Simulated scan of single mutants.
Amino acid sequence: MSADGREGSNWFDDDAGPVVRPYAMTRGRTTSAAQHRLDVIALVVTEPHADDPEADQTLAPEHVDIVELCRHAPQSVAELAAELDLPIGVVRVLVGDLVDAELVHVTRPVPPAELPDESILRDVINGLRAL
């Protein structure tokens, strides 16, 4: 009990464990050093040489989790945020750190303006059928 007669306030929920603010995971940063622009649908892929991220003492546990999740199959930034139960902004910073460390790479979706016109694709299909 505290001096005023109330029970001491806990900074954690007994069921959830200790609370860590998202900015603590990113050390207060809202962007990564290289200013990577990551869409929520950008795919994160683990680099082949990133075989043991736990050996790197500079990585936070969340960094290691991202590398491990992306090792088996590419994951979108949104999927990583959902799987790790972290805000998108935090995941963007963490993924940016991993890109800088060359442990993952990001493939960005093709913008709709750069996709081929549907009529061109139909002409190609018709040309292939004619063969």
Rank of each mutant, 00 (worst) to 15 (best):
M1Q: 14
M1K: 07
S2R: 12
D4F: 08
G5L: 09
G5V: 08
R6N: 10
G8W: 13
S9T: 11
S9L: 14
S9H: 10
N10P: 02
W11N: 14
F12R: 13
F12W: 15
F12K: 09
D13C: 14
A16D: 15
P18R: 15
V19F: 15
V20G: 04
R21N: 14
R21T: 13
P22G: 05
M25E: 14
T26Y: 02
T26L: 01
R27H: 15
R29Q: 15
T31A: 12
T31I: 10
S32I: 04
S32D: 15
A33Q: 13
Q35D: 14
Q35Y: 11
Q35M: 10
H36V: 06
L38P: 02
L38G: 03
D39R: 11
I41A: 11
I41M: 11
A42F: 04
A42Y: 02
A42C: 12
L43S: 07
V44E: 03
V45E: 12
V45D: 06
T46Y: 01
E47N: 13
E47R: 10
H49T: 07
A50Y: 01
A50R: 02
A50L: 03
D51P: 00
D51F: 10
D52M: 07
D52I: 04
D52F: 08
E54Q: 13
E54N: 11
A55W: 06
D56G: 05
D56I: 08
Q57I: 07
T58M: 08
L59G: 00
A60K: 11
A60R: 12
P61H: 09
P61C: 06
P61I: 06
P61L: 09
E62C: 07
I66V: 15
I66A: 03
I66S: 03
V67G: 02
V67S: 00
V67W: 01
H72A: 13
H72G: 10
H72Q: 12
A73F: 07
P74T: 07
P74V: 07
V77C: 04
V77E: 02
A78Q: 10
L80K: 00
L84I: 05
D85I: 05
L86C: 10
L86E: 09
P87D: 12
I88E: 08
V90T: 15
R92F: 02
R92N: 05
R92A: 03
R92P: 01
V93T: 06
V93Y: 01
V93E: 03
V93S: 02
V93R: 01
L94R: 02
L94N: 02
L94H: 03
G96Q: 05
G96A: 09
L98N: 00
V99I: 15
D100V: 03
A101T: 03
A101N: 04
E102P: 00
L103S: 00
H105L: 08
H105V: 05
H105R: 11
T107C: 12
P109Y: 06
P111M: 07
P112C: 07
A113W: 06
E114F: 11
E114R: 13
L115T: 08
L115S: 05
P116G: 08
D117R: 14
D117N: 12
E118R: 11
S119E: 14
I120H: 07
L121Q: 06
R122M: 03
V124T: 04
V124D: 05
I125A: 13
I125L: 08
L128V: 05
R129I: 11
L131D: 09
